Simulated assay, not measured.
Amino acid sequence: MIQRGDTEIAVTDRGGDGPPVVLLHGLAGSSRELLPTADALTDRFRVLLIDQRGHGRSTRRPADVSRSAYVGDVIAVIEQLLPGQRVRLIGQSMGAHTAFLTAAARPDLIDRLVMLEGHVAGDDEPEGPANIGRYFASWPVPFADEAAARSFLGDRPLTDAWVNDLEVAPDGLRPRFDPDIMQAAIAAVQEDRWTEWENLTVPTLAVFAEHGMFTAEQKDELIRRRPDTRRADLPAASHDAHLDAFDGWIGILRRYLSEKFA
């Protein structure tokens, strides 16, 4: 655990030899869903995974869910656990947003950046965060058992990640996050961050899924505004491509992380 004020940040060191890699999950997820990604990299890299504040084994109800707080957590992990090293930083969805802002704030700490299904433009749906909060608040928790959770959450790859991460409580199974914290956390992502993006100096790979969250125009704009950005696309994949297009994702990731940069 890394202590930052009143907030504990849980870190999993998956081991491995080689340059350090740090992985960041998305909203309402945890490092657990990225363990297969981590384990696919430990033959070449030392891999650490972070439970972002409000998620997983980190403090469930942090007082601060600003973007700067999330960025500060990542910086603290790197400086305390990987002192003097530059890391390959990888994030999915909101984790990609955190990773990008970390690279923008502290390029001296980041060797290269990978954003899976992430973007830097704000959401033009003002009710988006509230809708997300209402969805998580609609979960009939506690779930009596895993079968009840799967029945409610449906049959999709993300269901496995959510079910596997449920916490055993005296009254049943509960998620490791609270709806209001998720709503507040994602609301902070609403602001456009084009200035930081256009001034970013860290080598970057943007990975998009064919059936992901972003339109063709949104994907193109990200590259147009920063032409040095590399882009890769995963066919037949969803927003959670690390789960439903795993082999393609790992292939792209291993190639990029192993490239030599001048």
Rank of each mutant, 00 (worst) to 15 (best):
N131M: 13
F261Q: 04
T7R: 06
P142C: 10
H242K: 01
R176M: 06
R60V: 02
T37H: 05
A99H: 06
A187Q: 13
F152C: 03
V207Q: 09
A40M: 12
T102E: 10
A149T: 09
A40S: 15
R46I: 04
S31Y: 00
P140I: 02
L34V: 02
R60Q: 13
V11M: 06
D6Q: 13
W139L: 15
L205G: 07
D220V: 06
D13G: 08
R32W: 05
P129A: 00
L243M: 06
Q80L: 11
L243V: 02
V77L: 10
L89M: 14
T204W: 10
D6Y: 03
R255S: 12
V202P: 06
D124A: 11
D51E: 10
A147S: 12
P62V: 03
V207F: 07
M213E: 01
A69Y: 08
L116M: 13
A232Q: 13
L34D: 02
D155Q: 14
E8W: 06
L82S: 08
G16F: 09
A184L: 08
A76V: 04
E259L: 13
S31W: 01
L109V: 09
L200S: 14
T98L: 00
T42A: 09
S138A: 13
E198S: 15
Y70D: 08
A99C: 07
L243N: 01
W162C: 00
I78G: 05
I181T: 14
M182R: 01
L49P: 07
S151H: 10
L109F: 10
Q218R: 13
Y256A: 06
Q85S: 11
R231D: 04
D51Q: 11
F152P: 01
E217H: 06
T229I: 15
R60S: 12
F214P: 01
D220W: 04
G56Q: 10
E127C: 05
G122F: 11
I223H: 05
L166G: 08
E33M: 01
E117W: 03
L48V: 02
A241S: 15
R57T: 02
S31F: 02
D244P: 07
F246Y: 15
R86A: 14
L200W: 07
F143D: 11
S138P: 07
P126T: 14
H25D: 01
I9Y: 04
G128S: 04
Y70Q: 12
N164D: 15
D39L: 15
E167A: 05
E259I: 09
E259M: 14
R225F: 10
D178V: 15
R150P: 00
V189C: 14
S258I: 08
V189A: 12
L166D: 02
M182W: 02
I252N: 09
A232F: 06
I252W: 08
S58N: 05
G133H: 13
S238Q: 00
D240A: 11
Q183W: 03
L243S: 01
